[in-house]
Structures are given as structure tokens and as C-alpha cells.
Design a protein around this nucleic acid. Structure first.
Lengths: 152, 152
DNA sequence: TATTGTTATACTCTATAACTATA
DNA sequence: TATAGTTATAGAGTATAACAATA
């Protein structure tokens, strides 16, 4: 392709890198992240803060440490994320009755309301991004990713 | 699970977020990025700089603009990446004979040597990360990701 | 002694705007 | 008028170390 010495415009897609799982994953994730953040911005959320909110709205009462472990974040990052959500009135810190060192993070009524709207927008953006795949393929992709993401 | 009001240790895996394609992709990519960077560090490379080097070693003569477009990076980021690779003697900037504004980026002999070692380490790290999948499943994952990553 | 949340710091990554030289 | 490369800068995101309160 470029054996003639000319600069290709988009022939790069034929390079070995394009067969690289890591590269494909990075590229797909970049698109996913951008679409997710764009969809969540009107709600004052990012993919990151949405993830924290999602973990507090359906009956779980995670400590900040639980959030850090599950989201693979440093505890200091969770502090900043919970600060942001608390300032907007979406979550509250409550003392953990089982451990006086720990804070349990719970969604407020307002937080649950914002989440229920935001999750619809996020799912729509996700479907849009994966419109090249049919529902069965989407489930197949999720199953494969789950096995890679949760090897532990 | 937490309907009794106690804080779960890892029950978060049952939350709706874990079924979220974007979340799974972000998590899988984070693992992939960490493994890739660790594997490439001994060569003085990161996943990012490795990608640039890979695009210059097999006969292509991309301009910096080509690199930015294909890697979905801002041109200013490509400047910094090429600077780093050039300082290590892995690539050179050459004037583009077809456009005096543009630089063509070409790998040096040393750059090609480092790449051929680094790509082995990167592929090994990738296989290790995806050890939960058999070869057919890995190809299936790559095919699905390719269709999401290259919708264009 | 070890752990939870916190603060502080630094380093990478990302996004943006402006400038120059060419087209 | 638009494009390639560059510079500068500011904002995210990430990683690390240290500290007070508690286990």
C-alpha cells in the first residue's frame, strides 16, 4: 500500500495495530466514553459520577471503600466524586452503624429522580453507539467483556 | 441484597451497572491499558507511543495528521508523542515531498528493532489478559469490537 | 497494627484556542 | 480561505504518600 513511498490518507486501517484487541478496545471505549459523557452532561453527570450514583440507588448502601473497590478507583478519587454528588444534593453520607470509621453513601430522593432520567439517556446513547450490532450480538459482546472485565 | 439495610462487601456486582455495556467496556479497557503499559514500560514505551511507532514501522509513511486522524488524537498530542519518540531515536520527521506544510513520520532502524521486541511483550500481555477466552472467542470479541470501533 | 476517609501533590491525558507557514 | 504543525494552557483523570480517627 505504501510500498511506493507515498503517504496514505487512510491506509493505516490495514496496519497490524488494527487487529490488536487492546487497540480495538481502547478505540471502542473512547467512543463509548465520549457518547456517555455527552448523554449525561445535561443531567450534570459524567460516566464516572453516574457510576457512583447507580451504585447507590437500588437498595445497596455501599461505603466509600466499597465504591472504590468495585469501580477500581483510588479512595481519594471517590472522595471527590461523592463530594460533587453531595453538593448537588444527589447523595448523602451517613455514618456506618457497623464501623464508625466508614461512611455509607445513599441516594437522596432527588438523586434517584435524576438517575431514573439519566439512565434512559445513557441507555439510548449506548444503543446508538452499538447500532451496528443486533441485540443478540450486543449480548454476546457483553458476555465476552464480562469475562475479561471480571477475571479477578 | 441490601434490603436489610446492611452494607454489602461485594454485592455490588449484582447492580444494574454490571449489565451495562459501557461499564464493562470501560472496565475491560482499564485492565487492558494497565497491562499494556506495564508490558511496554521496559522498552520506554506506553500504549500510546507504541501505537504511533506501530503505524510507522511497516512501510507506511503517515503524516502527523494521518496519525491524529487514525488514532483519534488531537494534532497537538501527536506533536508530543512524536517528540518523545524522536528524542529516543525511534522515529524521524521528514518533509513530505507532496506538501511542504506536512511532516512524514518514519521509524529508524533502532525504532524498528525496539518495536519488534515490544510487540512480542505487548501480545503476551494481551494473551494473558484474555486468558479466560479461547482463541475463537478472542477472534469473536475482536470482530465485534471492530464493528463498534470503526462505524465511521 | 491495620483500615477508613481525607488532604495534598504530581503526573498523565484530554480539549481548546491561537499562531506560522504553507496550500 | 483552509490546512499542517506547533505552542500554550486548563481541565480531567490517575497514582502516591501521609495523616487522624477508629478497628
Amino acid at each position: 500500500m505504501a510500498t511506493d513511498g507515498t503517504a496514505p490518507s487512510d491506509g493505516l486501517a490495514s496496519v497490524s495495530l488494527a487487529a490488536d484487541l487492546s487497540f480495538l478496545m481502547a478505540r471502542a471505549n473512547a467512543l463509548s466514553l465520549a457518547a456517555g459523557n455527552a448523554a449525561l452532561r445535561p443531567f450534570g453527570l459524567s460516566v464516572r459520577s453516574f457510576s457512583v450514583l447507580a451504585l447507590t440507588v437500588d437498595g445497596h448502601r455501599p461505603t466509600q471503600r466499597d465504591l472504590a473497590t468495585f469501580l477500581r478507583l483510588d479512595p481519594s478519587q471517590v472522595v471527590a466524586l461523592v463530594d460533587g454528588l453531595q453538593q448537588r444534593g444527589f447523595v448523602e453520607r451517613r455514618p456506618d452503624p457497623n464501623d464508625r470509621r466508614a461512611n455509607v453513601v445513599v441516594a437522596t430522593g432527588e438523586g434517584r429522580g435524576v438517575y431514573s432520567s439519566a439512565v434512559v439517556a445513557a441507555r439510548a446513547a449506548e444503543r446508538e453507539l452499538h447500532s451496528a450490532l443486533d441485540p443478540a450480538e450486543r449480548e454476546q459482546l457483553a458476555a465476552l467483556l464480562r469475562r475479561v472485565a471480571f477475571v479477578d
